[in-house]
Simulated scan of single mutants.
Amino acid sequence: MAHALVIGGTRFIGRHLVDDLLAHDYEVTLFNRGTHENPFAATDGVEHVQGDRTDDGDLAAAAAVDPDVVFDCVAYFPRDVRQATRVFDDVDAYVYISSGSAYGREDIPKREGFTPLCECTDEQATTDEPETYGPRKAEGDRAVFEAAADGVNAMGVRPPIVYGPHDYTERLDYWIDRVHRFDRVLVPGDGTNLWHRVYVEDVASGLRVVAEAGEAGDIYNVGDQRAVTMRGMVELIDESLAAVDPDHEAGVEIVTAGPRELATADLELDDFVLYRDPPHMLSTEKVAALGWESTPLSEAMERTVADHLESDRTGRENGPDREDEERVLGVLDTV
């Protein structure tokens, strides 16, 4: 039985990763600061080492559990990756969670080894700001390349926007909440905006598949193998709500609004979460060649919607107030 060390492992991606590893007969040790509730506290086959991944002594203590595989879910700075690949230089696989934001050119789709990565200055590498996230993840990828060149079996996974149960970002919750509460939903633009997403359980299985079959020094995109537009996403949420909530009747009216209409309520296109211009799409051929595949969209969204209904998440802070949307809808009704 293989032994996996998961750095992180209690909140979102890491939580699903632990479930996936247990389902595939791994023993698991979690390494984190213990600042969040541990859902695996009473789970057989899961141990916990408390510590700070930025502390050399704590990381060495985690290495003492002698893992076969290390999954790094919370490496947000290049130094984190460099430190981890030094400490875990003899494991069978070290897998880093990177991001589709690491890409530095707007190719459609973005491909591993072809689309250039973001540049990263020394200042960006140590600055925890949203605008430095992509550069920091790209520099983490380069740290993986460097480690692999030195003989470490290091590799990585690049997801786009991740959604699914236990998503504390509440990005998709905003749209589920809107479709669940209202018969008319305002969508920015013309509804064809595309920001590639990936179901969280598929990120988890992708991490495991890469650890088991990936090549040292390679980074693999993971994303829904059928991508949908923003309109398609809202329609899918509507269908999923009807499937899991007997009180919801499918048939939400999607009303699109451009910049001029939105301006009547002092709104802009990117005030709406999950809107992105230009489109963002990742190729997933490389990871699929390892035997990975994504969950059908209807299944993924139904599980996501069911979790939303059981939670207290609304995501309402991630988008405009309904009153402002109603102002726009009113303007459109008079056109």
Rank of each mutant, 00 (worst) to 15 (best):
E131M: 02
L274R: 05
M233W: 04
G319N: 00
L22A: 03
A148Q: 02
D333M: 02
L172K: 12
R15K: 14
D307S: 13
F77V: 11
P279S: 13
T35R: 15
V74A: 14
R111D: 08
D238F: 11
V157I: 14
T264H: 10
D271V: 11
S294M: 10
V65E: 02
Y103N: 01
D122Y: 03
P296M: 04
P159Y: 08
M281C: 06
D190R: 11
W292S: 09
G57K: 09
E268G: 15
R226G: 11
Y76N: 14
P246I: 07
K286W: 03
D312L: 06
D72F: 04
D56M: 07
R208S: 10
A289P: 07
D307R: 07
C120W: 08
F12V: 05
V144T: 01
N221L: 08
D25N: 13
E112F: 12
R111Q: 13
Y94D: 03
S101Q: 04
V203G: 12
E170N: 11
R208D: 05
G315A: 05
L22Y: 08
A306F: 02
A125I: 00
T10W: 08
R184F: 03
T229P: 12
Q50M: 14
T334W: 07
M233V: 11
D44S: 15
D277A: 15
G104N: 06
V203E: 12
R197E: 13
V198D: 00
G113N: 00
Q50H: 11
R105Q: 13
P130D: 06
G164F: 06
G51P: 10
V222G: 04
I219V: 15
L236T: 15
E37V: 14
E106I: 06
E268F: 04
L117G: 06
R142V: 06
D72V: 05
R171N: 02
V69L: 11
G140I: 11
A204P: 09
L30V: 07
T304C: 03
G14Q: 08
R231P: 02
D107A: 13
D321C: 02
E47Q: 13
I108L: 15
L207T: 00
T314W: 04
H180N: 13
A289L: 09
G315Y: 01
D238N: 06
W175V: 00
W292D: 05
D19E: 15
D167M: 10
L274Q: 13
W195N: 15
G100A: 10
L241M: 00
V152N: 04
R276P: 01
L236V: 08
R208F: 13
V210D: 07
V18P: 03
S101M: 08
E249Q: 10
V185S: 00
G51D: 03
S294Y: 13
